[in-house]
C-alpha cells in the first residue's frame, strides 16, 4: 500500500479554542518504503498518523490510500506508544489478537505468535500479563502483534519513545532485521533524529504546530543496516541538517560540517 497526501489540513475545536494541527502538508509514501517523520513534541505527528490511518478525517486536502496490485485486503495497522496492549489479555493473546480478528484458528495463531515472541526474546513470558512486563517487553509484544498480522502498511507512533537508551537501540535493531525481511510500507513517527535516519529510506521533517513540511531527505545507506552506522560522517551531516531545519542546532551553527 502507498499513500498520497495533498494539501492536508486539520483543525480541532471551534472559535477561540481552535487549534490548527496540520497545515498544507503534501507528501507521499511509496510502496514498501520506510518513511520516518520527525518534528518537535506536540507538532501534530500523532494527528498525522491518525489521519493516514483514516481514524481522523482531514479538514482540507485528502489522503489517498492506494493498494498495491493484487493486494485484496489492505490493512493499515498502528503501533501506539502507550496503551498498546490489552492489560486483561496474556502476552500470547495480545500477540495473537490481530490473527484472532482475522479468524485464524487458535492453534495456528498461538503457534505463530509463540514463534515470533521467541524471536523477540519473550519465550517463557507467554502467559504473563502486560502489568508484569517492563516497558521494553510491552513494546516488543506490540511490535510482534503488528508484524504477525501481515499489515500492508504499518504506522508506528514513537513506539520506542518511553524506553531507556539501550533497550531502544536493541529494539531498533530487532525492528530493522524483521522489517528488512517483510518490507511492507512503514510510517514511523519519532522525535529521535538518529532513530529516524538509522531506520528509514526517507525522513520527513515537520515544523512546530501547525505541522508543515520543512524538509524531506533521502537516506541512501545500504541495507541491512546496523547501529554502527550512526558513527558514519555522512550520518552526522544528515543529522545536523535535520537539526538545522528544526532550529535546534547549538550556536554557532556548525556550517563547516556541510
Amino acid at each position: 500500500m502507498r499513500f498520497e497526501c495533498s494539501q492536508l489540513g486539520l483543525e480541532f475545536g471551534k472559535g477561540a479554542g481552535r487549534v490548527q494541527a496540520l497545515d498544507g502538508l503534501s507528501f507521499d509514501v511509496k510502496e514498501g518504503e520506510f518513511l520516518a517523520v520527525v518534528g518537535p513534541s506536540g507538532c501534530g505527528k500523532t494527528t498525522l498518523l491518525r489521519t493516514l490511518a483514516g481514524l481522523l478525517p482531514p479538514t482540507t486536502g485528502e489522503v489517498r490510500r492506494i493498494p498495491a496490485p493484487g493486494e485484496e485486503s489492505p490493512r493499515t495497522l498502528i503501533v501506539f506508544q502507550e496503551h498498546g496492549l490489552f492489560p486483561w489479555m496474556t502476552v500470547l493473546d495480545n500477540a495473537a489478537f490481530g490473527l484472532e480478528m482475522q479468524g485464524v484458528a487458535k492453534d495456528e495463531r498461538y503457534a505463530r505468535a509463540r514463534q515470533l515472541l521467541q524471536r523477540f526474546g519473550l519465550a517463557g513470558r507467554e502467559e504473563a500479563y502486560p502489568g508484569q512486563l517492563s516497558a521494553g517487553m510491552k513494546q516488543r509484544v506490540a511490535v510482534v502483534r503488528s508484524f504477525i498480522s501481515r499489515p500492508t502498511a504499518l504506522l508506528m507512533d514513537e513506539p520506542f519513545g518511553a524506553l531507556d537508551y539501550q533497550t531502544r537501540l536493541r529494539l531498533q535493531q530487532e525492528l530493522l532485521d524483521l522489517w528488512e525481511q517483510e518490507r511492507h510500507t512503514v510510517v514511523f513517527v519519532t522525535h529521535d533524529i538518529e532513530e529516524a535516519i538509522l531506520l528509514s529510506d526517507r525522513v520527513l521533517v515537520l515544523s512546530a504546530q501547525p505541522a508543515r513540511a520543512v524538509g524531506l531527505h533521502r537516506v541512501d545507506f545500504p541495507r541491512p543496516r546496523h547501529a554502527a552506522l550512526t558513527a558514519d560522517p555522512e550520518f552526522a551531516r544528515l543529522r545536523v541538517r535535520i537539526l538545522d531545519e528544526l532550529h535546534v542546532t547549538p550556536h554557532p551553527a556548525p556550517h563547516a560540517l556541510r
Binding site: 493499515t76 498502528i78 498498546g84 490489552f86 480478528m101
Partner: peptide, 9 residues
C-alpha cells in the same frame, strides 16, 4: 483500547 481493537478489525 477501543481504537486499538478497531484498528485490528
Amino acid at each position: 483500547y477501543v481504537e486499538l481493537a478497531r484498528n485490528y478489525g
